[in-house]
Amino acid sequence: MSLENEMTSKLDISAISPFNFDLSVRIFSDGDPEIRKYENGMFWQVLRTDQGLVLVTVESEDAENLTVKMESTEELSPKNLKSISNMVNKIFNLDMDLNPFYREIESDDVMNRITDRLHGLKNPTTPTLFEALVDSVAEQQLSLKAAHSIENRVIKSFGPSINIKGKTCYAYPTPEDFAFLELQKLRDCGLSFRKSEYIRDLSLGILNHEIDLDQIGKLNSTQDMIDELCKIRGVGVWTGELAVLRGLGRLDALPADDIGLRRAISHFYRDDVRISADEACEIAHNWGKWKGLAGYYLIVAEIMGLKV
């Protein structure tokens, strides 16, 4: 889709304090600039509205206030401006109040020092549970670096695109984009045969109304959500935990089987001695219902090389 008659809109959004925009989006610094990226104080990503694809650029001039620029083929309606505002809010968890989390972990000296260093960090959430679920399937038994390379190829191969000022940007594929693909096309992106099957079958199940991710997202408890996701072929406990954490912002979910998370917990709590999932859960007990967010803080702290 080429934006020959490009329209630009802007809106301002405020986050609940405390919020540090740079810390919260720094995780995207290594992102693909044609998909999602943070660079020179700007974050950009293509989002979907009823009026089509929109390239959204987000900047922060001070701690809690964001400026959102939207480039599209036509002037966006008030409904779609509101929709984009809600999506940006969800992506950055702007409505989350971090203060209860900080109070919860005050007795944990290690986590307390880390949150002091990363004050205002909020974890990102994907626009949809579908996106989080597909990514989690792709990342099964792979390093994040390898998985992200595969995910980027999948997005560029099957996701719709827009062209702005000569630059092409891609949106995440939908179930319709995956449902009728030949498995070999997914395998050509680096996915295994089984993962290709899982992603295609998930997409078909959604289109055939056999899988309702919206209803799963409305369940009362995180465990109920994970249990329902685990009924989907190819989704185990780790995949379900990761998907609800990333896609629904269920911060009580702790994917303790995740090697990277266990490494980060071990680094700060056990002097890099390898720990089991049960040991990780035991350490995480002090974090209450904020286990997933605390785990994210540890991963970011490790990536940044913080000494605490």
Rank of each mutant, 00 (worst) to 15 (best):
E34G: 11
E151R: 06
K231G: 13
N89G: 12
D62P: 02
I265L: 09
S24N: 10
L204F: 05
L245S: 02
P160N: 03
A256C: 11
I303D: 12
I226H: 10
E182Q: 03
F193Y: 12
D62G: 01
G305L: 04
G217M: 08
V237N: 15
A301N: 05
F43P: 04
H267M: 12
A284V: 13
G240M: 02
A301S: 07
Q223M: 14
S192I: 08
K122A: 06
T125G: 02
G292V: 13
F21R: 03
L229Y: 04
R233S: 12
N93F: 12
L53D: 02
L207R: 09
I164D: 14
N99A: 00
L219A: 14
S72W: 09
D188K: 09
S196G: 00
E197Y: 06
S266R: 04
I299S: 08
I206E: 15
F158Y: 01
K185S: 08
Y296V: 15
G288E: 15
F92K: 05
A280C: 14
V244W: 07
F158S: 01
P78M: 05
L219F: 14
L142P: 07
I299C: 14
R117N: 03
G260H: 06
S72R: 05
R250F: 02
T168R: 07
A132G: 05
T67W: 10
N93H: 15
R187P: 06
V110N: 03
S85I: 11
C189P: 01
P127W: 00
F178E: 02
R270I: 01
I84C: 06
P127I: 02
A256Y: 12
L55C: 01
H119D: 06
K291Y: 11
